[in-house]
Design a protein around this nucleic acid. Structure first.
Lengths: 206, 206
DNA sequence: TTCTGTGAATAGGTTCACAGCT
DNA sequence: AGCTGTGAACCTATTCACAGAA
């Protein structure tokens, strides 16, 4: 398949949210202009984004909300549920475990791991924190496609190496370090200090 | 000043991290190639990024680590400390309050607000959670440039409107909704479900 | 010789504009 | 008439390639 830009994929995610809202409101169709307004972009952009994957609309009418919704779900690979393991039972891990947005989208955190004996065994949102030593054994029994890494920076790379050896193919990283992984593994790093710095740059330059 | 792209600003943040690490290791100089390797980019990219702001290197030698560090700090507006208020004392708020990366960069969370009577008055990392009703009064006394919004989605826009009226000029948003603000206010939304969806897309398309 | 700084070339993403359905 | 789908034009970002300083 032709290479799709990250920005297009991110916008599709956004459109999907608005489509689901529209669906809940019982709307039958929606125009590219409407989606654009909700997503803070232009109607041409919306149509172009969708056109990479096919022609889903009706000229003169717009897009059928349930159909487009299903199409985008398909494109993003969201029809199936994903098993997700979380490594790092710190404050951030805690926030992520209970984050509703993941579950809603079919990302189910199935296990939490930590190194710290004081955390191991404690119950978190219905899950018991497990010793990270058990990672390999557990993943052999129940493989996971996706892992969330929320360890301190220095521990992250080692954890990631182990996850990769266990067949994890996608990693969402909250540790503030760049990670190196084989080419067939996808990593997305969320670095909150960096986000604040872009704001600080904006404040300083006006 | 010429418009600098968001990606350039983000990379500068990254370079700054590596420079500080190098500084801690006592290195005197660093080349664009080295910075590129650490940041996962190319040496030409590093030089181009820096060239928008001046010529900081020495041909044949590279960049003096402490100087370049200081320069980038200046560019990003990080010489001064920022007063940051946090609205939303949920799990995510809790994770953000204790996040070391903010403090390290001079972003000091000076107050936490929530609506929920059960949370108001509790101590969080040395700060007492205050009633969000006090927001306007507090910000009049002690203005803040930056706010972090970690409320549930439906509450976010109202909170943001109030923050903007109080003179807040930059907002880091963790609520999963797009926010509308006046043109002179900078908003950065971090949407974790969306990040996971880009991973799911990657998994589904290989 | 090494590595920077930067115009020029290339690639990539966005917007335009209009033909073509409904 | 209204709105999609899409090639072409445009604009922005990245990469190349080389002159020039240490």
């Amino acid at each position: 398949m032709r290479k799709i830009s990250d920005s297009t994929v991110r916008r599709l995610s956004l459109y999907l949210r608005f489509l689901e809202q529209s669906l809940a409101q019982g709307r039958a169709t929606i125009s590219s202009g409407e989606l654009a307004r909700l997503g803070g972009t232009t109607s041409a952009q919306v149509r172009k984004d969708l056109s990479f994957f096919g022609s889903f609309g009706k000229r003169g009418l717009g897009y059928a909300v349930p159909e487009l919704s299903a199409k985008i779900q398909g494109i993003l690979g969201l029809q199936r549920a994903y098993r997700v393991v979380l490594v790092g039972a710190g404050k951030m891990g805690g926030a992520l475990v209970q984050y509703q947005g993941f579950k809603q989208r079919g990302f189910n955190i199935s296990a939490i791991y930590d190194q710290d004996a004081r955390k191991i065994g404690s119950r978190w949102n219905g899950l018991v924190v497990r010793d990270v030593k058990l990672l390999e054994g557990d993943l052999k029994k129940e493989p996971s496609d996706i892992a969330i890494v929320a360890t301190p920076g220095p521990a992250a790379q080692e954890v990631v190496d182990r996850l990769v050896r266990c067949g994890v193919k996608a990693i969402l990283n909250f540790a503030p370090v760049p990670l190196s992984v084989p080419g067939d593994v996808e990593v997305k790093t969320v670095n909150m200090a960096l986000e604040l710095e872009t704001l600080s740059y904006a404040l300083a330059n006006r």
